[in-house]
Design a protein around this nucleic acid. Structure first.
Lengths: 214, 214
DNA sequence: GACTGTGAAACAATTCACAGCG
DNA sequence: CGCTGTGAATTGTTTCACAGTC
């Protein structure tokens, strides 16, 4: 089912976009879509979509297009979203709380089952359903709660320490929101999300077009 | 000063990473760094750094490396960060509030000067220094507050409407946190930040390595 | 001697163009 | 006929390797 070829990271990111758009179409009651229509909605080239999907198999019908419900199912399957992933948040500041309160995640297949922080004043406090636990207890709790993904939302200077606890606990996947690089063994996957990086991209473009006096 | 060649988007994103790491080094009192040391800290190849920098000019000293303070200044300059950008947040939910309360942004050159929402129950409420204003007043306020960048943090179904108000107001740059595609005229730059996309990337990799029974 | 800056080589991703199929 | 799936062509990015400079 899953081809051996190496799949580019951008393909996976686009896949997530296709899924989002397909689920919207499904809710609107659409049944079938062609690669060109979907491409338009996603802002990409139609053959890009066909190539991306081809990494995983053949899902379309020639002359017709793709059946939306089926395609959603297939994409979810090969992205590993037909399974609920247990996640922990490490660092309960503003961002950590916003993620904990976010309603959309469980629906997408990610359940937050643990909230960790090293600040003794926060430990024991309740955020929604969860009680904040000391980060030093991450290892013990990771087993109990079957945590598979950790989300770092600490200040940058504490990101590496958080990462160490996460690695210690045997968790193999990290999303790091802290604006700091972290180093981990190479069997641990890290994905960085840095908000200011995106603002900087806009800053660069605005500064450029201003210079060109458009 | 600025070369004409088209600069890849990934280069700009890496640039932001280099800046982050260089500022850390500067705080630690380092003066000079070579491309290979910096590469190691950023997790990239040394010639990548040299190529990236070469898009903008020559900043290094052969046989020595880069003077950290100077390089920080140069990078900030060509990324447009020697200017403070006025930003507006549209959609004051959990994430919007977390960004409003975030202390790091002003230091990085982004000041949030307006908070907008269309919920009449929220209008007038104070979040930190700012009072929530009706999104319909965005156009009028954009001029007054000299807003250059808009940040969408609405629920997905309201993202397009928010984008329309933003475009109406003459703002040319948008960061969209809502998990929905938006369509805008082509002179408006949009950058998408979708948290769940990153979780999905991890999901895919975990599902894969599980399959490989490593 | 050490390290940058950069053409050239290697590699990767995207788009084209069309054969093949419903 | 319309649309997918895909090899081939194109375009873009990364890495190499070394000449040039401090």
């Amino acid at each position: 089912m899953i081809k051996k070829e190496k799949i580019p990271k951008v393909t996976i990111h686009r896949m997530a976009v296709y899924l989002q758009v397909l689920e919207d179409l499904d809710r609107e009651g659409e049944d079938v879509i062609s690669s060109s229509k979907l491409a338009e909605l996603c802002g990409v080239n139609p053959s890009q979509i066909r190539k991306d999907l081809a990494y995983f198999g053949e899902f379309g019908v020639r002359g017709v297009g793709y059946f939306i419900k089926d395609l959603i199912g297939s994409i979810k399957h090969f992205l590993g979203l037909d399974h609920v992933w247990n996640c922990a948040i490490v660092g309960i500041g503003n961002l950590g709380r916003a993620i904990l309160r976010h309603k959309g995640l469980p629906y997408k297949g990610f359940r937050i089952v643990g909230a960790f922080d090293c600040d003794p004043f926060k430990i024991g406090e309740k955020v929604g359903e969860l009680e904040i636990i000391c980060t030093r207890r991450l290892k013990e709790k990771a087993k109990e709660l079957k945590i598979e993904i950790a989300i770092i939302t600490t200040p940058p200077e504490r990101a590496q320490r958080a990462a160490n606890h996460i690695v210690e606990a045997g968790i193999k996947a990290i999303v790091n929101f802290a604006p700091a690089r972290i180093s981990v063994p190479e069997d641990v996957i890290v994905d960085y999300v840095d908000f200011s990086t995106h603002l900087i991209y806009l800053s660069f473009n605005l500064a450029r077009t201003k210079g060109k006096n458009i």
